[in-house]
């Protein structure tokens, strides 16, 4: 039977609802989960499973009303993607718990959290549990690392095909950069994310790789990384960050121009971390640092334009008359 609808406004909808967008993200992350399982074996599936289950549990505890929107599954999958393949299961659980409890709910809940929850979890865990995070594949001094971004002096340069297939990858998310590209293109095709954001980030990374003078660690241990944009694009979590982290609407600026400023900033932070700090990857740091500027970017870019709209030219006529003057749909 028919019912009156309490709310005013349109009764039809575009269909692009939060659960739908989250489902798109899960679908786009699925190839990455499969690729990491193919590359690292069942250990990868266990990490994905633990991360997703922990995220869903924590979300349901904190906010039962919105727990079914699928955002917890997405956070869990992104947390897992940022885990090293060698991580123990509890590291994935701790990552999801930090992301959901602290990153999402303690900082305001879905839509209000300033920082990308998964990036926050990764950075905190790198600080709190470095042993679980880095050994045995990674070391922060670059000496025993197997990732190309930290590759030792004298190691043979990697080809683009090697990079695309992730033969030197460390985290689940970059198990196979091809899978990340596929997932990212799916999101663009579904119009879930703006293509401008990854393009701007990846473009800025390439440019900075060419123009920035490399720091001591690069010059000393991995000179082939200096001035080599392709190595920076296809390595570490660059692609993953471009398609799955910077495109999180909650922690990005509200306006499209603001988002381009935001991802340029993130690219700059990424390259600074890679070139001048002991950390070989740096995207999680870069995302957090860029997140911190979002309120400032929004304030400048939204209210600047809106303020101009509301000048002295305000209705001299009662707007009832305005609306009453055949302003209908024509």
């Amino acid at each position: 039977m028919t019912r009156g609808r309490s709310g005013a406004g349109p009764v039809i909808h575009s269909g692009r609802t939060t659960p739908r967008l989250m489902a798109h993200a899960v679908a786009a992350l699925a190839p990455i989960a499969l690729a990491s399982t193919w590359r690292f074996g069942t250990a990868a599936s266990v990490l994905f499973g633990v991360a997703i289950a922990t995220a869903m549990l924590c979300d349901a505890v904190c906010d039962r009303r919105n727990a079914n929107d699928g955002s917890a599954v997405v956070i869990g999958m992104i947390v897992a993607c940022l885990m090293p393949a060698t991580a123990p299961w509890w590291l994935a659980a701790a990552g999801s718990a930090i992301a959901v409890l602290l990153g999402k709910h303690a900082l305001g809940g879905l839509g209000r959290n300033l920082f990308n929850p998964a990036a926050l979890a990764r950075v905190l865990l790198m600080g709190l549990a470095p042993a679980a995070f880095f050994s045995p594949l990674w070391t922060i001094d670059g000496r025993t690392a197997a990732t190309p971004l930290a590759k030792e002096l004298g190691a043979s340069p990697v080809t683009v095909v090697d990079l695309l297939l992730g033969l030197d990858s460390v985290t689940l998310g970059d198990a196979m950069p091809v899978a990340v590209l596929v997932g990212g293109l799916v999101l663009i095709a579904l119009r879930t994310i703006d293509w401008q954001v990854p393009l701007c980030y990846l473009g800025a990374i390439s440019l900075l790789a060419l123009v920035l003078p490399p720091g001591e660690r690069i010059v000393g241990h991995a000179p082939w990384l200096a001035g080599n944009p392709m190595a920076h694009l296809l390595n570490g979590s660059t692609l993953f960050c471009a398609f799955f982290m910077l495109t999180d609407p909650v922690t990005a600026p509200f306006t499209r121009p603001g988002r381009l400023v935001f991802c340029t900033l993130a690219a700059a932070y990424t390259m600074v971390v890679r070139y001048y700090t002991p950390y070989p990857d740096g995207v999680a740091f870069a995302v957090l640092l860029a997140n911190a500027s979002v309120p400032f970017i929004d304030r400048k870019m939204i209210w600047g334009s809106v303020g101009r709209g509301a000048s002295d030219e305000l209705p001299a006529v009662d707007s009832q008359y305005l609306a009453g003057d055949e302003g209908g749909q024509g």
Binding site: G7, I12, T17, F254
Partner: peptide
């Protein structure tokens, strides 16, 4: 007279700041 498949409920979920309204 729109059917259930043609309309959408107002669920008032939290804003995800997607910016589509703007």
């Amino acid at each position: 007279a729109l059917g259930h498949g043609q309309i959408s409920d107002l669920l008032d979920r939290p804003c995800v700041r997607c910016g589509e309204c703007m």
